[in-house]
Amino acid sequence: MSLRGRRNLFALGVLGFSVLFLWGLNGLPAFGHYEGVYGITLNRVAVTQRHATNLVAAVTFDYRGFDTLGEEFILFAAVVGVAILLRAQRDEAATPDEEDEETKDESRDAPHTSDAVRVLGLALIGPTVLFGLYIVAHGHLTPGGGFQGGVVLATAALLVYLTGEYVALRRVSPESVTELAESVGAGGYAAIGFIGLLTGQAFLTNVLPLGMTGQLNSSGTILLINLAVGVGVAGGFSLILAEFLEQTLLVREREHG
């Protein structure tokens, strides 16, 4: 279809679509006046039931924990997909006998960075990791948790790259480590679910001691799941970034070497 034909077809379609959508939205309760029974019930009972002050975490990792297990595996599958799609260049560049040689990595040029950036970047790595861990660990108390903290942790890995320490990164966290983190995160989530089964209750039942509301060591499995998710998300995002970076680096390597 020509661009014009496509535009015309779409114009017709989107007109109908928008009218339908607005018609549907018109049936919603007015903005700010929502009284859904699910949320109201949870707001009333959840803190006492789960000893978590962050209700969003309680819903995500306990009441609807099975959904989140599915989400964690979406992340897992997407990361595997990226690894598959971007694998080609690695095969092209590496001849069979040099695949596992660490020494080969030395030849990979990292981008040149000025000393100022380098120092700043290196100085930021520590705080970033700490900040990420803090966000992961306090998910059940305050805003944050494994998903957000995991991404922050992955940016720490990126900082290492930006400061030109990519070669070091490859030595410290080669791909298999990020892959392992990815599997430990997703598999660990499922394993925590089994604790419930072992005690004769349903899968993903929060059977651990709930602790004192408001303390770090509280709300049972929610904290553990947050940690597993944090590991999984950090591993997943690092793997994605590494795969994209691998590509650019290999190209550069081919050009220079």
Partner: peptide, 12 residues
């Protein structure tokens, strides 16, 4: 009033 989501959205 969704600070959790806001944090997610900003990092991502």
């Amino acid at each position: 009033q969704a600070p959790d989501v806001a944090l997610s959205q900003i990092v991502v």
